[in-house]
């Protein structure tokens, strides 16, 4: 699976890091870092992360 976060939209709410901490994390500066190619076993969590993103900045595509 391929994950893309539109960083022009991202406002560092951090909801994705709660839903899928293996894929998304907030660094010490308070900004988002993420794994752009997580394993397909992460799909359910990444879907949830995309759902709860307040600015809907997360896109998921089959790799």
């Amino acid at each position: 699976m391929k994950v893309t976060v539109d960083m022009t939209m991202c406002q560092d709410h951090g909801q994705c890091a709660i839903a899928a901490p293996e894929v998304f994390r907030i660094n010490d500066e308070g900004h988002l870092e993420y794994d752009a190619e997580p394993g397909d076993d992460m799909l359910e969590y990444v879907e949830e992360a995309a759902d709860v993103c307040p600015v809907q900045a997360i896109l998921i595509a089959d790799s």
């Binding site: 951090g14 909801q15 890091a17 709660i18 907030i26 660094n27 308070g30």
Partner: peptide, 10 residues
């Protein structure tokens, strides 16, 4: 507060 704190707060 940094978004990094949220997980713990929740």
């Amino acid at each position: 507060l940094s978004a990094a704190r949220q997980r713990g707060l929740r």
